[in-house]
């Protein structure tokens, strides 16, 4: 039986008075790729960011309803947000490596967790870079600044940096939207490999991409979850007319 890793129940999210998520209930299965699609401004990023409580950084945000990760309500008062974010990692739309060396970027997570053992760090860094399919490209210049990498390499480095913390869930917000087709296909391949070990939730603007890499697809529209099902079903025989219109490119 497939475990449900993430579950939301009647979730509402407001920016001040403005509702951004309207009654979203969804369960996301473990070790699968779940894609969130929908037109710009429909609340995909907002939903994603509430799964690791990055929305806490925005003062005006108010959340109602429940979000469970492994059946623990992550908006409970006693939740340790810092540890939650170690468990639920995130890759951003715009690659954002620190202005440090490649090695230090990947080692940052383990280091702040108190791991200062050099050989262990080396191991973690190499493994993470290999898992992120960028090891061969950077192994000779681990101590060069990460800012010298290309956009696609930077994004894979950011994925490696997230992997180094050893999360269980990886949230990705349009990770390939700023990349060229070759880098994009590399990232897609990578995501396909990563789902063996991680639960992946990915926001994408690109419907072909969602169709290629995801097991489940959720279609959002104006803050509502319109339809959520197996990707195959959504793309071949959606239940709702809005979904069909969006997928066939009639709007958005």
């Amino acid at each position: 039986m497939i475990l449900q890793k993430i579950r939301t129940e009647n979730m509402y999210l407001y920016y001040g008075n403005k509702m951004a998520l309207n009654n979203v209930s969804i369960s996301i299965p473990e070790k699968q790729v779940t894609a969130l699609i929908g037109p710009s401004g429909c609340g995909k990023s907002t939903f994603l960011r509430s799964l690791n409580r990055m929305n806490d950084l925005i003062d005006s945000v108010k959340i109602e309803g429940n979000i469970f990760v492994d059946d623990i309500n992550i908006y409970d008062k006693n939740i340790d947000v810092v540890n939650l974010r170690k468990k639920v990692g995130m890759v951003f739309q715009k690659s954002n490596p620190f202005a440090k060396s490649i090695f230090d970027n990947v080692a940052y997570g383990p280091r702040i967790n108190g791991n200062n053992n050099k050989s262990e760090l080396k191991e973690i860094v190499e493994k993470s870079l290999r898992d992120a399919a960028i090891w061969d490209e950077v192994k000779d210049r681990l101590h060069d600044s990460a800012m010298g990498l290309s956009g696609g390499q930077q994004q894979r480095l950011c994925i490696a940096r997230t992997l180094a913390v050893d999360p269980e869930i990886i949230l990705m917000d349009e990770p390939a939207s700023a990349l060229d087709p070759i880098s994009t296909s590399k990232i897609e391949e990578l995501i396909f490999q990563l789902k063996e070990n991680f639960t992946i939730v990915i926001v994408t603007h690109n419907m072909q991409q969602a169709a290629r890499i995801s097991d489940n697809t959720a279609f959002f529209y104006l803050g509502e979850l319109i339809e959520y099902n197996k990707t195959k079903k959504i793309y071949t025989n959606p239940d709702k007319k809005q979904t069909e219109d969006y997928i066939s490119g009639r709007f958005g």
Binding site: F92, N96, F98, A99, Y108, G109
Partner: peptide, 21 residues
């Protein structure tokens, strides 16, 4: 601001982010 977000998303606390990033 992305540095700040990236660090927090990696499970760093606020002061770790402030001092190390």
């Amino acid at each position: 601001k992305t540095y700040y977000e990236a660090s927090l998303a990696l499970g760093a606390s606020k002061w770790q982010t402030a001092f190390f990033v």
